[in-house]
């Protein structure tokens, strides 16, 4: 096992187990309730729990906390952006000890609700606490250096592409927003570092849900010669991976380890949202909540990385491990904005 592929490992079908996990939380289920019994609520963004990446991972973190920490968890999915404020405030009203918002899209609602319920602890994934309006002191921002995982994925992709006479690789983003662009920036930088001559394509679907939109975009990129498609669009992105598969190309998963989708998944740029959620709950249970600041998860803390590398890519494993070490050591600086 390599350094970066460790962590939560290849947790195959996390999505299929995630749904009932949210519901079956009773005290009896907690085999070893180790800490205080606190109530934790999780609000997903409109991608829903079936996105197989971002929301699903957050849910997994909550599920892990329920079974391992003996806390009481509840998940509220959001159907539209009109749900954010009511969802967050419902949990706050019902005196949840910790309310976690998943995703950048919820920043504004989080700012409003946190200000209204100063007694409740809030955490928000992918949002810089200092960017919230009024910088409420009861919110902790959970940030990731997605670009570091993206860099590794891009490096691997370019190595593979070079050996297989591919001139072009590409990425499909959901929207041009920071957490997405971090990945893509890293991906492109990594690719250029491995092969300065490689061409990178990038596009945005403006959607995180509808798979057909990402598929269309990916098919277009493949038509322009792309041999490897990196999806950064949640559930929508699954369509991009599907496009790669149907055209005999390779895909790179995002957020969760999406190797289970098949052998066409070269690897995944992972972001261990589950770990972040679990750690934050643990912190609150122990009474050590870091309100009013950010916690950043990176390659060093094993908060980001790449997932299982497919058989096609194993021969580059050593090179990737070396690059990962350099990033951790700080000898490689990864950009986080797309040019």
């Amino acid at each position: 096992m390599s350094l970066v592929a460790a962590g939560c490992g290849s947790s195959g079908n996390s999505s299929s187990t995630s749904t009932p996990a949210a519901a079956g939380s009773t005290s009896t289920a907690a085999a070893a309730p180790t800490g205080k019994k606190i109530k934790v609520g999780l609000v997903t963004d409109i991608g829903g729990l079936n996105d197989r990446s971002f929301n699903a991972l957050a849910n997994k973190g909550l599920g892990d906390a329920e079974s391992q920490l003996g806390i009481d968890g509840r998940v509220l999915t959001s159907k539209s952006n009109a749900d954010y404020v009511p969802n967050l405030s419902t949990l706050a009203q019902q005196k949840y000890d910790l309310v976690i918002g998943v995703g950048f899209l919820m920043a504004d609602a989080m700012g409003k609700v946190a200000k209204k319920y100063p007694g409740t602890k809030f955490a928000i994934i992918d949002v810089d606490q200092t960017s919230l309006k009024g910088k409420p002191a009861n919110v902790e921002g959970l940030l990731f250096k997605e670009e570091e995982g993206g860099y590794l994925a891009g490096y691997l992709a370019a190595l593979y592409a070079k050996d297989h006479k591919m001139t072009t690789i590409s990425s499909v983003g959901g929207q041009k927003i920071p957490p997405v662009d971090h990945y893509i920036a890293g991906y492109q930088a990594g690719a250029k570092a491995a092969d300065p001559g490689i061409k990178t394509l990038n596009g945005y679907s403006q959607d995180f849900v509808d798979q057909s939109k990402c598929k269309e975009l990916a098919l277009g990129q493949i038509g322009q010669g792309s041999g490897i498609v990196f999806q950064v669009a949640g559930q929508c992105g699954l369509g991009a991976l599907d496009a790669a598969k149907s055209k005999g190309k390779l895909g790179i998963g995002v957020d969760a380890d999406q190797a289970y989708l098949g052998s066409h998944i070269l690897t995944s740029a992972t972001k261990k949202v589950d770990v972040a959620v679990f750690d934050t709950i643990k912190e609150v249970q122990a009474g050590g909540f870091k309100a009013g600041t950010n916690t950043t998860f990176d390659l060093k803390t094993n908060g980001v990385g790449i997932g299982k590398v497919s058989a096609a890519g194993t021969k580059y494993q050593a090179q990737i491990d070396k690059v990962a070490k350099d990033i951790v050591a700080g000898t490689i600086t990864v950009p986080d904005t797309v040019k």
Partner: peptide
């Protein structure tokens, strides 16, 4: 209908929130 089936209003024991939508 859209409001009534939002997850915050459905106890998972009554109906699975995922299915509610």
């Amino acid at each position: 209908l859209s409001q009534g089936t939002s997850v915050r209003n459905l106890d998972p024991a009554v109906f699975q929130p995922e299915l509610a939508q």
